[in-house]
Amino acid sequence: MVTIVAIDGNGVAIVAVDGNGVALIAVNSLVPKVIDVKEAGPGGACSARKVFGMSQRFASLSLIALTAVAISACATKKKDLPPPPPVVGTVVPQTTAPVDNGSVPPPAMVGTTVIPGSAADFVAQAGADHVLFGYDSYELDEDARTILGKQAEWLARYPAVKVTVEGHADERGTREYNLALGDRRATAAKNFLAAQGVDTGRMSVISYGKERPAVDGADEAAWAQNRRAVTVVAAKP
């Protein structure tokens, strides 16, 4: 049974696997996700790291699936450990794109283990925890406004939850300017959420400039992913 037992301050969901292992899944950042699987049992350290890209819309599903892969990979190397438990849980699938793609039926719902009100739930329900921007722009396009609108709906359902909106820039600007640009982006996202009724007292902004790219790359595809504002659900007090 995979159960999310806690969300830490970095928006990292901690998934308890069994008595032997703990999988850490970063759920607050963008594709590609980094998954760390750390063995906590007495058999010694076993760690596997997977970096994978995926489309946002299936992020939640992939997350669980890859957790299973990572755990299996780890377990196969440690023959003295019991086999990993089967992964039976999944999350509510979400689609953020307009429903114009009849060829892909929505996956069946098999019950959820995502804790309502958690960061994982936020990502699942809003479709994404982040919105993207054009080069040197802090304008929210239609996709961004759609996602932020869903984020605002979720935040309306969980009025006790606080968020930090992180602003980021791609590498094609100077350091100081990009810090200011990241602030502009985070502020634009925050202001939109506020306009949708989210109390500004629940939101703080922080800019990382070009210091924390989501993707390590130096081409347009990477830059596009790195120009972003991420809504990070704060850890519960």
């Binding site: 802090y138 100081e176 810090l179 200011a180 602030d183 502009r184 502020t187 634009a188 800019s207």
Partner: peptide, 9 residues
């Protein structure tokens, strides 16, 4: 130094 207030630096 610079300070950013509400997106304005």
């Amino acid at each position: 130094f610079s300070m950013s207030v509400g997106g304005n630096t």
